[in-house]
Design a protein around this nucleic acid. Structure first.
Length: 437
RNA sequence: CGGGGUGUAGCGCAGCCUGGUAGCGCAUCUGCUUUGGGAGCAGAGGGCCGGGAGUUCAAAUCUCUCCACCCCGACCA
């Protein structure tokens, strides 16, 4: 992609409305534009990142045995009346009246809808267990949206729902999602720490929030230092095996949000205790038969008796993650994308657009990278070197290949790693061979 | 939902107190010079001063009202 043709409206100055760093950078780097309070348009580069994040989530859901479907954004109020949440959900639910005066709503979550699908179709215990998920826009009419996409009213969320014949099965589904979340966030370069969360009226220990540490996190969290050393990707996961050892390992150390914080227990950790701010990027919980019972979603059990399935639900804030990743990966010059979510892998900077040698060297480099299947953004604009450096650092592509007349005289280009700032001068061929594996 | 604040060019802001021809920086366009970390000079374009109603000879400025957005808190993926 040529930058001269790309739709990338960057800003040199900080927009006044953005307070936290991820919001500022998302606006400055031309990823999003606010449409109204808590509602954003995703511009081409932002959309690329969103899609990458979404795809990682999808792959890890699939790997864990969940199956993707797609439910609508607009739902009928009837289902919610059935579950009893229509009145209970309050003003956060955006309610809509259609032309026939029917009450509709923009879905804030999908337990009712998935339960409805389930009860229409699943008849036998033999069809369980099932985990179904979708990645869809949600709307929650927050009183006070803020922090850009981190706490918008409209947001993209992956929500999965599990159905099992008994508690043991539900626990197994829970564990699958638990482990898949560890892998999902790790692939994005995030160290997410599972923290025990409020389980509401159900009780038990089957609810966890996945928190990443960041200075601008919205809540205070406490955890054992050793969590930072845990590596979710170090071993291959077999989702058909018993996952409880993995879950046990990740829940063995102290980790709590401020509402679950126990100062006495935390004090035992001594200097191993970390007190920090955290961003919630995922939340999983088991809720038993709450919806299946209320909505009459039953199957026939092995003994011929009617059986009420045990359910759980599992959310990941996909659009929020884009902001969260920036919170974790930026410096004073801009965003520093982790490799796996970067909108482009390499940025090629032509320091002298119009110079025959520079143009030729750049174009040859770009086309070789593209031929190798690497996403390249080529800055061919007629701008000064400084402006190009600044733009490239701002948008945070993991690699930069800098090509100018000075180096070309000696047959050299420059390869820069955005995350470390490390640069080396080398031939175009060796630069390419470092990027093309 | 309580408290506070801001709306003036695409972005960042001044002007408002004390009413009198709407300004600055960046960005945009043109020309020349420049060319390895957001260039210099010269010129140009761009505004229902958030909307409505009032006061006044005269309103960006004063009054009332509505709207939008932001911040702090309570709440939340």
């Amino acid at each position: 992609m040529r930058l001269s043709e790309y739709f990338l409206p960057t800003l040199k100055e900080d927009p006044a409305e953005a307070q936290i760093v991820s919001h500022r950078l998302m606006l400055r780097a031309g990823l999003v534009r606010q449409a109204s309070a808590g509602i954003y348009s995703w511009l081409p580069m932002g959309l690329r990142v969103l899609r990458k994040v979404e795809q990682i989530v999808r792959e890890e859901q699939d790997r864990a045995g969940a199956q993707e479907l797609l439910m609508p954004t607009i739902q009928s109020a009837e289902l919610w009346q059935e579950s009893g949440r229509y009145d209970g959900y309050g003003k956060e639910m955006l309610r809509i009246i259609d032309r026939h005066d029917r009450e509709m709503l923009y879905g804030p979550t999908n337990e009712e809808l998935i339960t409805d699908i389930f009860r229409q179709t699943i008849r036998s215990y033999k069809d369980l267990s099932k985990i179904l998920y979708h990645i869809q826009w949600k709307f929650r009419d927050e009183v006070r949206p803020r922090f850009g996409v981190m706490r918008g009213r409209e947001f993209l969320m992956k929500d999965a729902y599990s159905f099992d014949v008994d508690y043991e099965g539900a626990r197994n589904s829970y564990n699958r999602m638990f482990v898949s979340y560890l892998r999902t966030f790790a692939r994005m370069g995030l160290q997410a720490i599972p923290m025990q969360a409020d389980t509401g009226p159900i009780g038990g220990d089957l609810s966890h929030e996945f928190i990443i540490l960041a200075d601008t996190g919205e809540s205070e969290v406490f955890c054992h230092k050793d969590y930072l050393e845990f590596d979710a990707l170090s071993e291959e996961t077999d989702y058909r095996s018993d996952l409880s050892p993995v879950v046990d390992k990740w829940t063995s150390l102290y980790a709590a949000t401020d509402e679950k914080h126990d100062p006495e227990k935390a004090a035992e950790l001594g200097d191993k205790l970390i007190s920090a701010r955290g961003i919630e990027v995922g939340h999983i919980f088991y809720f038993g038969t709450k919806y299946s019972k209320a909505m009459g979603a039953t199957v026939t059990g092995a003994d011929g008796e009617e059986l009420v399935p045990e359910m759980g639900s599992y959310g990941i804030g996909v659009s929020r993650l884009v902001g969260a990743i920036i919170e974790a990966y930026h410096d004073e010059d801009g965003i520093v994308w982790p490799d796996d979510v970067a909108p482009f892998t390499v940025g090629v900077i032509n320091l002298r657009t119009g110079d025959q040698d520079c143009d030729a060297a750049c174009e040859s480099t770009v086309s070789k990278l593209e031929a190798a299947g690497i996403d390249v953004l080529y800055d061919d604009r007629d701008e000064r070197a400084g402006a190009k450096f600044a733009t490239m650092d701002l948008i945070g592509l993991p690699w930069q290949i800098i090509i100018g007349p000075r180096g070309l005289k000696n047959g050299l280009v420059e390869l820069k790693r955005r995350s470390t700032g490390e640069r080396e001068e080398l031939s175009a061929e060796s630069a390419l061979s470092k990027l093309i594996r």
